[in-house]
Write a protein that binds this DNA or RNA. Sequence first.
DNA 1: CCGATAACGATGCGATCGCATTGAAACCTG
DNA 2: CAGGTTTCAATGCGATCGCATCGTTATCGG
Lengths: 201, 201
Amino acid sequence: MPRAVDHEQRRFEIVAGLWQIVAEQGIEGVSLRTVAARAGVSMGRVQHYFGTKDALVVAGIDLLIKRAVIEYEATEGRPPRDRLLHILLQQIPATDAGRIGVTVWYAYVAKAMTHAAVRQILAEATRVGVEECTRHIQEADHLDEAEARARAIELLALSDGLTLRVLIGDITAAEAEASIRSTVTRREPAIGPAAAYAPRV
Amino acid sequence: MPRAVDHEQRRFEIVAGLWQIVAEQGIEGVSLRTVAARAGVSMGRVQHYFGTKDALVVAGIDLLIKRAVIEYEATEGRPPRDRLLHILLQQIPATDAGRIGVTVWYAYVAKAMTHAAVRQILAEATRVGVEECTRHIQEADHLDEAEARARAIELLALSDGLTLRVLIGDITAAEAEASIRSTVTRREPAIGPAAAYAPRV
DNA sequence: CCGATAACGATGCGATCGCATTGAAACCTG
DNA sequence: CAGGTTTCAATGCGATCGCATCGTTATCGG
Protein backbone atom coordinates (compact mmCIF):
# COMPACT_ATOMS: atom_id res chain seq x y z
CA MET A 1 0.00 0.00 0.00
CA PRO A 2 1.19 3.44 -0.91
CA ARG A 3 1.21 6.82 0.70
CA ALA A 4 -1.86 7.43 2.86
CA VAL A 5 -3.51 10.84 2.51
CA ASP A 6 -6.87 12.14 3.68
CA HIS A 7 -8.92 11.98 0.53
CA GLU A 8 -11.80 14.05 1.91
CA GLN A 9 -9.45 16.74 3.12
CA ARG A 10 -7.61 16.99 -0.21
CA ARG A 11 -10.83 17.25 -2.13
CA PHE A 12 -12.16 19.89 0.22
CA GLU A 13 -9.04 22.04 -0.13
CA ILE A 14 -9.43 22.04 -3.87
CA VAL A 15 -13.17 22.71 -3.79
CA ALA A 16 -12.56 25.59 -1.38
CA GLY A 17 -10.31 27.10 -4.02
CA LEU A 18 -13.02 26.48 -6.59
CA TRP A 19 -15.57 28.35 -4.49
CA GLN A 20 -13.29 31.35 -4.21
CA ILE A 21 -12.79 31.49 -7.95
CA VAL A 22 -16.52 31.14 -8.58
CA ALA A 23 -17.33 33.89 -6.08
CA GLU A 24 -14.77 36.22 -7.61
CA GLN A 25 -15.04 35.49 -11.32
CA GLY A 26 -18.06 33.27 -11.73
CA ILE A 27 -18.01 29.76 -13.13
CA GLU A 28 -16.53 31.28 -16.28
CA GLY A 29 -13.35 31.85 -14.30
CA VAL A 30 -12.99 28.19 -13.41
CA SER A 31 -10.21 26.30 -15.11
CA LEU A 32 -8.05 23.47 -13.86
CA ARG A 33 -5.17 25.93 -13.65
CA THR A 34 -6.93 28.81 -11.90
CA VAL A 35 -8.48 26.54 -9.29
CA ALA A 36 -5.20 24.76 -8.66
CA ALA A 37 -3.40 28.07 -8.24
CA ARG A 38 -6.05 29.44 -5.88
CA ALA A 39 -6.01 26.26 -3.79
CA GLY A 40 -2.21 26.39 -3.73
CA VAL A 41 -1.76 22.97 -5.29
CA SER A 42 -0.52 21.69 -8.60
CA MET A 43 -2.78 21.21 -11.54
CA GLY A 44 -1.82 17.55 -11.57
CA ARG A 45 -3.33 17.17 -8.12
CA VAL A 46 -6.64 18.63 -9.23
CA GLN A 47 -6.69 16.24 -12.15
CA HIS A 48 -5.86 13.36 -9.86
CA TYR A 49 -8.79 13.98 -7.51
CA PHE A 50 -11.46 15.09 -9.95
CA GLY A 51 -10.45 13.82 -13.36
CA THR A 52 -12.25 16.35 -15.50
CA LYS A 53 -13.23 19.98 -15.12
CA ASP A 54 -16.87 19.03 -15.26
CA ALA A 55 -16.54 16.61 -12.35
CA LEU A 56 -14.80 19.34 -10.37
CA VAL A 57 -17.59 21.82 -11.03
CA VAL A 58 -20.26 19.30 -10.05
CA ALA A 59 -18.36 18.46 -6.88
CA GLY A 60 -18.48 22.15 -6.04
CA ILE A 61 -22.26 22.31 -5.77
CA ASP A 62 -22.46 18.88 -4.20
CA LEU A 63 -20.22 19.86 -1.31
CA LEU A 64 -21.88 23.24 -0.89
CA ILE A 65 -25.25 21.57 -0.37
CA LYS A 66 -23.83 18.88 1.92
CA ARG A 67 -22.44 21.61 4.18
CA ALA A 68 -25.77 23.43 4.31
CA VAL A 69 -27.56 20.19 5.16
CA ILE A 70 -25.17 19.49 8.02
CA GLU A 71 -25.77 22.96 9.42
CA TYR A 72 -29.48 22.47 9.19
CA GLU A 73 -29.40 19.08 10.86
CA ALA A 74 -27.69 20.71 13.84
CA THR A 75 -30.99 22.49 14.57
CA GLU A 76 -32.77 19.20 15.21
CA GLY A 77 -34.85 19.26 18.38
CA ARG A 78 -35.48 22.99 18.27
CA PRO A 79 -39.03 24.32 17.80
CA PRO A 80 -40.48 24.10 14.27
CA ARG A 81 -40.65 27.87 13.89
CA ASP A 82 -36.93 28.17 14.64
CA ARG A 83 -36.05 25.49 12.14
CA LEU A 84 -38.26 27.10 9.52
CA LEU A 85 -36.55 30.44 10.07
CA HIS A 86 -33.17 28.75 9.87
CA ILE A 87 -33.93 27.53 6.36
CA LEU A 88 -35.42 30.83 5.26
CA LEU A 89 -32.66 33.00 6.71
CA GLN A 90 -29.72 30.73 6.13
CA GLN A 91 -28.91 32.07 2.69
CA ILE A 92 -29.34 35.76 3.47
CA PRO A 93 -25.77 37.04 3.20
CA ALA A 94 -25.24 38.59 6.60
CA THR A 95 -21.50 37.87 6.85
CA ASP A 96 -18.73 37.97 4.26
CA ALA A 97 -18.44 34.20 4.34
CA GLY A 98 -22.17 33.92 3.89
CA ARG A 99 -22.04 36.24 0.92
CA ILE A 100 -19.41 34.08 -0.77
CA GLY A 101 -21.48 30.99 -0.17
CA VAL A 102 -24.68 32.40 -1.58
CA THR A 103 -22.87 34.00 -4.51
CA VAL A 104 -21.53 30.57 -5.39
CA TRP A 105 -25.01 29.14 -4.95
CA TYR A 106 -26.54 31.52 -7.46
CA ALA A 107 -23.72 30.96 -9.90
CA TYR A 108 -24.78 27.32 -9.84
CA VAL A 109 -28.44 28.20 -10.20
CA ALA A 110 -27.56 29.88 -13.47
CA LYS A 111 -25.37 26.94 -14.43
CA ALA A 112 -28.30 24.62 -13.80
CA MET A 113 -30.17 26.16 -16.73
CA THR A 114 -27.69 24.59 -19.14
CA HIS A 115 -26.25 21.67 -17.18
CA ALA A 116 -28.48 18.69 -16.48
CA ALA A 117 -26.44 17.19 -13.64
CA VAL A 118 -26.27 20.47 -11.75
CA ARG A 119 -29.97 21.03 -12.35
CA GLN A 120 -30.78 17.64 -10.89
CA ILE A 121 -28.72 18.28 -7.77
CA LEU A 122 -30.36 21.66 -7.25
CA ALA A 123 -33.84 20.30 -7.86
CA GLU A 124 -33.30 17.61 -5.28
CA ALA A 125 -32.00 20.12 -2.76
CA THR A 126 -34.95 22.47 -3.22
CA ARG A 127 -37.33 19.53 -3.03
CA VAL A 128 -35.93 18.61 0.38
CA GLY A 129 -36.11 22.26 1.42
CA VAL A 130 -39.78 22.51 0.50
CA GLU A 131 -40.58 19.31 2.36
CA GLU A 132 -38.83 20.35 5.53
CA CYS A 133 -40.47 23.76 5.50
CA THR A 134 -43.85 22.20 4.86
CA ARG A 135 -43.39 19.91 7.84
CA HIS A 136 -42.45 22.76 10.15
CA ILE A 137 -45.35 24.93 9.00
CA GLN A 138 -47.77 22.08 9.53
CA GLU A 139 -46.51 21.55 13.05
CA ALA A 140 -46.44 25.22 13.94
CA ASP A 141 -49.66 26.39 12.37
CA HIS A 142 -51.76 23.21 12.22
CA LEU A 143 -52.49 23.60 8.52
CA ASP A 144 -53.21 20.68 6.26
CA GLU A 145 -50.45 19.44 3.99
CA ALA A 146 -51.52 21.21 0.80
CA GLU A 147 -51.91 24.58 2.47
CA ALA A 148 -48.63 24.23 4.32
CA ARG A 149 -46.87 23.28 1.10
CA ALA A 150 -48.20 26.30 -0.80
CA ARG A 151 -47.11 28.50 2.07
CA ALA A 152 -43.67 26.85 2.15
CA ILE A 153 -43.11 27.50 -1.53
CA GLU A 154 -44.19 31.10 -1.09
CA LEU A 155 -41.85 31.68 1.81
CA LEU A 156 -38.92 30.02 0.09
CA ALA A 157 -39.53 32.01 -3.07
CA LEU A 158 -39.67 35.19 -1.03
CA SER A 159 -36.38 34.26 0.62
CA ASP A 160 -34.78 33.56 -2.77
CA GLY A 161 -36.00 36.80 -4.25
CA LEU A 162 -34.90 38.88 -1.31
CA THR A 163 -31.51 37.21 -1.33
CA LEU A 164 -31.05 38.14 -4.97
CA ARG A 165 -31.86 41.74 -4.15
CA VAL A 166 -29.35 41.78 -1.33
CA LEU A 167 -26.71 40.39 -3.67
CA ILE A 168 -27.40 43.05 -6.28
CA GLY A 169 -27.24 45.68 -3.56
CA ASP A 170 -30.85 46.74 -3.84
CA ILE A 171 -31.66 46.14 -0.16
CA THR A 172 -29.61 45.27 2.92
CA ALA A 173 -29.41 41.90 4.60
CA ALA A 174 -31.15 43.35 7.66
CA GLU A 175 -34.09 44.54 5.56
CA ALA A 176 -34.40 41.14 3.92
CA GLU A 177 -34.33 39.40 7.29
CA ALA A 178 -36.97 41.76 8.70
CA SER A 179 -39.22 41.15 5.73
CA ILE A 180 -38.97 37.37 6.11
CA ARG A 181 -39.50 37.44 9.86
CA SER A 182 -42.56 39.62 9.60
CA THR A 183 -44.03 37.51 6.81
CA VAL A 184 -43.52 34.31 8.80
CA THR A 185 -44.99 35.83 11.95
CA ARG A 186 -47.98 37.23 10.09
CA ARG A 187 -49.38 33.75 9.51
CA GLU A 188 -51.98 34.80 7.01
CA PRO A 189 -54.88 32.54 6.07
CA ALA A 190 -54.42 29.83 3.49
CA ILE A 191 -54.56 30.50 -0.21
CA GLY A 192 -57.88 29.83 -1.84
CA PRO A 193 -60.94 31.40 -3.48
CA ALA A 194 -62.35 32.48 -0.14
CA ALA A 195 -59.19 34.31 0.81
CA ALA A 196 -58.56 35.59 -2.68
CA TYR A 197 -61.85 37.39 -2.93
CA ALA A 198 -62.14 38.50 0.65
CA PRO A 199 -63.19 42.15 0.95
CA ARG A 200 -60.44 44.59 1.68
CA VAL A 201 -60.10 45.36 5.39
CA MET B 1 -21.07 59.00 -47.51
CA PRO B 2 -20.79 55.21 -47.76
CA ARG B 3 -23.11 52.30 -47.75
CA ALA B 4 -26.21 52.87 -45.64
CA VAL B 5 -27.25 49.96 -43.39
CA ASP B 6 -29.70 49.85 -40.53
CA HIS B 7 -27.41 49.97 -37.54
CA GLU B 8 -30.11 49.07 -35.04
CA GLN B 9 -31.22 46.14 -37.12
CA ARG B 10 -27.71 44.75 -37.56
CA ARG B 11 -27.02 45.03 -33.86
CA PHE B 12 -30.30 43.37 -33.01
CA GLU B 13 -29.64 40.41 -35.29
CA ILE B 14 -26.35 39.78 -33.57
CA VAL B 15 -27.75 40.20 -30.07
CA ALA B 16 -30.57 37.80 -30.94
CA GLY B 17 -27.88 35.24 -31.71
CA LEU B 18 -26.20 36.07 -28.45
CA TRP B 19 -29.43 35.44 -26.53
CA GLN B 20 -29.82 32.03 -28.13
CA ILE B 21 -26.31 31.04 -27.18
CA VAL B 22 -26.77 32.29 -23.63
CA ALA B 23 -30.05 30.42 -23.26
CA GLU B 24 -28.54 27.20 -24.57
CA GLN B 25 -25.04 27.24 -23.13
CA GLY B 26 -24.95 30.10 -20.64
CA ILE B 27 -22.68 33.10 -20.88
CA GLU B 28 -19.78 30.65 -20.79
CA GLY B 29 -20.78 29.61 -24.28
CA VAL B 30 -20.46 33.12 -25.65
CA SER B 31 -17.53 33.80 -27.94
CA LEU B 32 -17.22 36.10 -30.91
CA ARG B 33 -17.22 33.04 -33.14
CA THR B 34 -20.15 31.15 -31.61
CA VAL B 35 -22.39 34.22 -31.59
CA ALA B 36 -21.47 35.11 -35.16
CA ALA B 37 -22.21 31.57 -36.30
CA ARG B 38 -25.55 31.50 -34.49
CA ALA B 39 -26.57 34.87 -35.90
CA GLY B 40 -25.52 33.71 -39.35
CA VAL B 41 -23.00 36.48 -39.86
CA SER B 42 -19.24 36.70 -40.04
CA MET B 43 -17.12 37.23 -36.99
CA GLY B 44 -15.79 40.40 -38.55
CA ARG B 45 -19.28 41.85 -38.53
CA VAL B 46 -19.67 41.17 -34.83
CA GLN B 47 -16.37 42.87 -34.18
CA HIS B 48 -17.39 45.80 -36.33
CA TYR B 49 -20.60 46.47 -34.42
CA PHE B 50 -19.49 45.69 -30.88
CA GLY B 51 -15.74 45.93 -30.80
CA THR B 52 -15.03 43.63 -27.91
CA LYS B 53 -16.69 40.58 -26.44
CA ASP B 54 -17.39 42.46 -23.25
CA ALA B 55 -19.27 45.20 -25.07
CA LEU B 56 -21.31 42.55 -26.85
CA VAL B 57 -22.24 40.87 -23.58
CA VAL B 58 -23.25 44.17 -21.99
CA ALA B 59 -25.32 45.06 -25.05
CA GLY B 60 -27.15 41.77 -24.53
CA ILE B 61 -28.58 42.75 -21.15
CA ASP B 62 -29.13 46.33 -22.23
CA LEU B 63 -31.35 45.36 -25.12
CA LEU B 64 -33.17 42.72 -23.10
CA ILE B 65 -34.20 45.33 -20.57
CA LYS B 66 -35.12 47.90 -23.22
CA ARG B 67 -37.51 45.41 -24.80
CA ALA B 68 -39.14 44.67 -21.45
CA VAL B 69 -39.56 48.36 -20.76
CA ILE B 70 -41.23 48.91 -24.12
CA GLU B 71 -43.66 46.07 -23.41
CA TYR B 72 -44.44 47.55 -20.03
CA GLU B 73 -44.98 51.04 -21.39
CA ALA B 74 -47.61 49.62 -23.70
CA THR B 75 -49.78 49.02 -20.62
CA GLU B 76 -49.99 52.72 -19.90
CA GLY B 77 -53.50 53.88 -19.16
CA ARG B 78 -54.65 50.53 -17.80
CA PRO B 79 -55.68 50.23 -14.13
CA PRO B 80 -52.85 50.14 -11.58
CA ARG B 81 -53.62 46.58 -10.54
CA ASP B 82 -53.25 45.39 -14.13
CA ARG B 83 -49.98 47.18 -14.55
CA LEU B 84 -48.71 45.77 -11.26
CA LEU B 85 -49.62 42.27 -12.36
CA HIS B 86 -47.94 42.85 -15.70
CA ILE B 87 -44.63 43.52 -13.96
CA LEU B 88 -45.02 40.62 -11.56
CA LEU B 89 -46.12 38.08 -14.16
CA GLN B 90 -44.05 39.27 -17.09
CA GLN B 91 -41.05 37.11 -16.30
CA ILE B 92 -42.94 33.92 -15.44
CA PRO B 93 -41.95 31.65 -18.36
CA ALA B 94 -45.33 30.71 -19.77
CA THR B 95 -44.21 30.37 -23.40
CA ASP B 96 -41.04 28.98 -24.95
CA ALA B 97 -39.95 32.45 -26.00
CA GLY B 98 -40.59 33.69 -22.49
CA ARG B 99 -38.51 30.90 -21.07
CA ILE B 100 -35.57 31.85 -23.25
CA GLY B 101 -35.87 35.47 -22.20
CA VAL B 102 -35.97 34.77 -18.50
CA THR B 103 -33.20 32.19 -18.77
CA VAL B 104 -31.03 34.84 -20.33
CA TRP B 105 -32.09 37.26 -17.61
CA TYR B 106 -30.93 34.95 -14.82
CA ALA B 107 -27.69 34.21 -16.62
CA TYR B 108 -27.04 37.95 -16.41
CA VAL B 109 -28.09 38.08 -12.76
CA ALA B 110 -25.32 35.62 -12.03
CA LYS B 111 -22.96 37.56 -14.25
CA ALA B 112 -23.75 40.70 -12.28
CA MET B 113 -22.09 39.21 -9.21
CA THR B 114 -18.71 39.51 -10.88
CA HIS B 115 -19.24 42.22 -13.49
CA ALA B 116 -19.70 45.80 -12.30
CA ALA B 117 -21.26 47.19 -15.49
CA VAL B 118 -23.84 44.44 -15.69
CA ARG B 119 -24.57 44.83 -11.98
CA GLN B 120 -25.21 48.53 -12.45
CA ILE B 121 -27.60 47.97 -15.34
CA LEU B 122 -29.51 45.35 -13.38
CA ALA B 123 -29.63 47.48 -10.25
CA GLU B 124 -31.06 50.37 -12.23
CA ALA B 125 -33.67 48.13 -13.83
CA THR B 126 -34.80 46.67 -10.51
CA ARG B 127 -34.88 50.15 -8.99
CA VAL B 128 -37.28 51.28 -11.70
CA GLY B 129 -39.31 48.11 -11.21
CA VAL B 130 -39.67 48.73 -7.49
CA GLU B 131 -40.70 52.32 -8.07
CA GLU B 132 -43.35 51.49 -10.63
CA CYS B 133 -44.77 48.74 -8.45
CA THR B 134 -44.77 51.04 -5.44
CA ARG B 135 -46.68 53.63 -7.39
CA HIS B 136 -49.32 51.16 -8.54
CA ILE B 137 -49.76 49.73 -5.05
CA GLN B 138 -50.17 53.18 -3.61
CA GLU B 139 -52.83 54.01 -6.15
CA ALA B 140 -54.66 50.73 -5.82
CA ASP B 141 -54.56 50.23 -2.07
CA HIS B 142 -54.14 53.79 -0.76
CA LEU B 143 -51.12 52.90 1.35
CA ASP B 144 -48.45 55.41 2.26
CA GLU B 145 -45.21 55.32 0.32
CA ALA B 146 -43.14 53.34 2.83
CA GLU B 147 -45.74 50.62 3.22
CA ALA B 148 -46.32 50.37 -0.49
CA ARG B 149 -42.61 50.14 -1.11
CA ALA B 150 -42.13 47.31 1.38
CA ARG B 151 -45.02 45.49 -0.23
CA ALA B 152 -43.58 46.08 -3.70
CA ILE B 153 -40.25 44.59 -2.73
CA GLU B 154 -41.99 41.61 -1.19
CA LEU B 155 -44.09 40.97 -4.27
CA LEU B 156 -41.15 41.36 -6.65
CA ALA B 157 -39.04 39.04 -4.52
CA LEU B 158 -41.83 36.50 -4.53
CA SER B 159 -42.06 36.76 -8.30
CA ASP B 160 -38.30 36.29 -8.66
CA GLY B 161 -38.24 33.31 -6.36
CA LEU B 162 -41.18 31.62 -8.04
CA THR B 163 -39.64 32.24 -11.44
CA LEU B 164 -36.46 30.50 -10.35
CA ARG B 165 -38.48 27.52 -9.19
CA VAL B 166 -40.28 27.33 -12.51
CA LEU B 167 -36.96 27.41 -14.34
CA ILE B 168 -35.55 24.61 -12.22
CA GLY B 169 -38.71 22.64 -12.83
CA ASP B 170 -39.86 22.61 -9.24
CA ILE B 171 -43.27 24.11 -9.98
CA THR B 172 -45.21 24.96 -13.13
CA ALA B 173 -45.72 28.41 -14.61
CA ALA B 174 -49.45 28.14 -13.84
CA GLU B 175 -48.76 27.45 -10.16
CA ALA B 176 -46.42 30.39 -9.96
CA GLU B 177 -48.96 32.67 -11.59
CA ALA B 178 -51.71 31.49 -9.26
CA SER B 179 -49.52 32.11 -6.24
CA ILE B 180 -48.72 35.65 -7.35
CA ARG B 181 -52.32 36.49 -8.23
CA SER B 182 -53.64 35.27 -4.91
CA THR B 183 -50.95 37.11 -2.97
CA VAL B 184 -51.69 40.35 -4.79
CA THR B 185 -55.43 39.97 -4.31
CA ARG B 186 -55.05 39.12 -0.65
CA ARG B 187 -54.01 42.68 0.16
CA GLU B 188 -52.76 41.93 3.65
CA PRO B 189 -52.16 44.69 6.21
CA ALA B 190 -48.95 46.65 6.19
CA ILE B 191 -45.75 45.37 7.72
CA GLY B 192 -44.96 46.68 11.17
CA PRO B 193 -44.75 45.79 14.85
CA ALA B 194 -48.51 45.85 15.22
CA ALA B 195 -49.00 43.43 12.39
CA ALA B 196 -45.99 41.35 13.26
CA TYR B 197 -47.22 40.54 16.73
CA ALA B 198 -50.89 40.36 15.98
CA PRO B 199 -52.53 37.29 17.53
CA ARG B 200 -53.27 34.45 15.22
CA VAL B 201 -56.76 34.52 13.80
C1' DC C 1 14.34 -4.10 2.81
C1' DC C 2 11.96 -4.31 -1.34
C1' DG C 3 8.69 -4.18 -4.88
C1' DA C 4 3.96 -2.82 -5.77
C1' DT C 5 1.12 1.08 -5.98
C1' DA C 6 -1.07 5.41 -4.89
C1' DA C 7 -0.02 10.27 -5.29
C1' DC C 8 1.22 13.39 -7.76
C1' DG C 9 4.44 17.29 -10.63
C1' DA C 10 5.78 18.35 -15.17
C1' DT C 11 5.11 18.71 -19.82
C1' DG C 12 3.12 18.44 -24.46
C1' DC C 13 -0.74 18.71 -27.77
C1' DG C 14 -4.52 20.24 -30.46
C1' DA C 15 -8.29 23.28 -30.10
C1' DT C 16 -10.22 27.56 -29.10
C1' DC C 17 -10.05 32.00 -27.48
C1' DG C 18 -10.08 37.56 -27.98
C1' DC C 19 -8.32 40.79 -30.69
C1' DA C 20 -5.51 43.39 -34.16
C1' DT C 21 -4.65 43.87 -38.85
C1' DT C 22 -5.47 44.09 -43.67
C1' DG C 23 -7.72 44.87 -47.79
C1' DA C 24 -11.58 44.70 -50.71
C1' DA C 25 -16.25 45.74 -51.88
C1' DA C 26 -20.11 48.98 -51.69
C1' DC C 27 -22.07 53.25 -51.61
C1' DC C 28 -22.95 58.41 -51.34
C1' DT C 29 -21.27 63.11 -52.18
C1' DG C 30 -19.25 66.41 -54.91
C1' DC D 1 -17.19 59.55 -62.45
C1' DA D 2 -13.70 60.24 -58.92
C1' DG D 3 -12.69 60.05 -54.15
C1' DG D 4 -13.63 59.26 -49.55
C1' DT D 5 -15.70 56.57 -46.12
C1' DT D 6 -18.16 52.85 -44.10
C1' DT D 7 -18.85 48.05 -43.94
C1' DC D 8 -17.10 43.80 -43.20
C1' DA D 9 -14.69 39.29 -44.61
C1' DA D 10 -10.33 37.03 -44.00
C1' DT D 11 -6.38 35.95 -41.66
C1' DG D 12 -2.71 35.78 -38.20
C1' DC D 13 -1.01 35.86 -33.43
C1' DG D 14 -0.16 34.97 -28.74
C1' DA D 15 -2.50 33.23 -24.81
C1' DT D 16 -5.20 29.91 -22.58
C1' DC D 17 -7.85 25.98 -22.45
C1' DG D 18 -8.93 20.66 -21.14
C1' DC D 19 -6.81 16.64 -21.10
C1' DA D 20 -3.45 12.79 -21.89
C1' DT D 21 0.88 11.18 -20.83
C1' DC D 22 5.07 10.20 -18.44
C1' DG D 23 8.19 9.87 -14.80
C1' DT D 24 9.24 10.44 -9.98
C1' DT D 25 8.54 10.12 -5.17
C1' DA D 26 6.82 8.30 -1.00
C1' DT D 27 4.81 4.81 1.55
C1' DC D 28 3.53 0.26 3.52
C1' DG D 29 2.59 -4.87 3.46
C1' DG D 30 5.22 -8.91 3.00
